[in-house]
């Protein structure tokens, strides 16, 4: 159980680091928000599952499950709101030059 939780947390950390690199490397708001959504959907999920396994069954696990459900409902809303605001304020998405 302990080893499983460590595996989950380390995999989650990997995705979080990749997302951080993505936020630095990608060119504009639109593509950067994709990198951020990588954090939410897999990074945070794997971290929370790892922590839940570490806690074992009980009320803490239930609470983590609630946090997870809320995360999956709220994150798309936030990402969508950011991108829509960027698009409505007239920002043009970055494009590949030769296409």
């Amino acid at each position: 159980m302990e080893i499983l939780s460590i595996i989950f947390i380390v995999t989650g950390l990997f995705f979080l680091i990749v997302a951080a690199i993505g936020v630095i490397r990608l060119p504009d708001v639109f593509s950067r928000s994709h990198a951020v959504s990588l954090t939410d959907s897999l990074g945070a999920f794997l971290m929370l599952v790892g922590i839940a396994l570490h806690e074992g069954f009980g009320k803490n696990m239930l609470k983590i499950m609630v946090v997870l459900a809320l995360l999956y409902i709220l994150n798309p809303v936030i990402a969508h709101a950011t991108i829509r605001a960027a698009l409505r304020s007239g920002l043009k998405p970055w494009k590949k030059e030769n296409s």
Partner: peptide
């Protein structure tokens, strides 16, 4: 549908009007 698109990394719903969605994809 819009939530599922946004939840999968690499695609984000940018605008919704009735049943038409504008999606930004990587």
């Amino acid at each position: 549908f819009g939530n599922s698109i946004t939840l999968t990394p690499g695609t984000i719903t940018a605008e919704v009007y009735r049943n038409t969605l504008i999606v930004h994809a990587m």
